[in-house]
């Protein structure tokens, strides 16, 4: 069973998520509360094998570089059952991911967020409230991008404004959950 939940219960903006603990690909434990001082926390459900997630690798690096100095934290989460810690480590190295990447064994956190695809983004404030949920931008092909939804959300958050488009959708690879 790949999808274990109903679409009507997707976590949307305004919902609050609980603190959680996960290990990165080096075995170091992180918890969400470690990022509490951030002006925004970007949670990115990503994959090593999904071509859609991979189409965004360089865009994720650019986002991290553009916003890290502005007090925005980035956390990658890999919840795919078939993608090992070693594979995640190698993939991160290969694509120059400097942000934290956590392995979500048994997709516990993906279930809590009700994340369904990769890449899928949640932006939280320091109270862990969801301010934005959805895609990075509106096209898998970088040259066709018209709206930079995640950037727009981050800019509004940093300017102290309400996120005008807090919920977007896009195709992605289904997160492969444990049976």
């Amino acid at each position: 069973m790949l999808i274990l939940f109903l679409p009507s219960v997707y976590l949307t903006s305004g919902h609050k998520v609980e603190n959680f603990k996960l290990k990165d690909y080096n075995g170091k434990e992180f918890q969400l509360s470690d990022f509490k001082e951030s002006r925004a926390i970007v949670i990115m459900f990503i994959a090593t094998q999904c071509p859609i997630s991979n189409a965004y690798n360089s865009r994720m690096v650019e986002l991290y570089n553009d916003y890290k100095e502005k007090g925005v934290s980035f956390i990658g989460i890999n919840s795919n059952k078939q993608e090992s810690v070693e594979e995640i480590k190698e993939h991160a190295k290969q694509h120059g991911f400097e942000f934290v990447i956590l392995k979500d064994e048994r997709n516990v956190i993906a279930d809590k967020f009700k994340a369904s695809v990769t890449p899928e983004i949640f932006v939280l404030n320091s109270d862990f409230e969801i301010l934005y949920h959805g895609r990075i931008d509106d096209s898998r092909k970088e040259e066709d991008v018209k709206t930079h939804d995640l950037r727009m959300a981050l800019d509004e958050i940093l300017a102290g404004k309400k996120v005008s488009n807090s919920q977007t959708k896009a195709f992605g690879c289904t997160i492969k959950r444990v049976d």
């Binding site: 790949l2 369904s116 695809v117 509106d138 896009a170 992605g172």
Partner: peptide
Amino acid sequence: DNDEELINFLDENWSGAL
């Protein structure tokens, strides 16, 4: 025009998962 247009046209509750 974009993925979201297709997703919402077919079913507004659809996340886009395939």
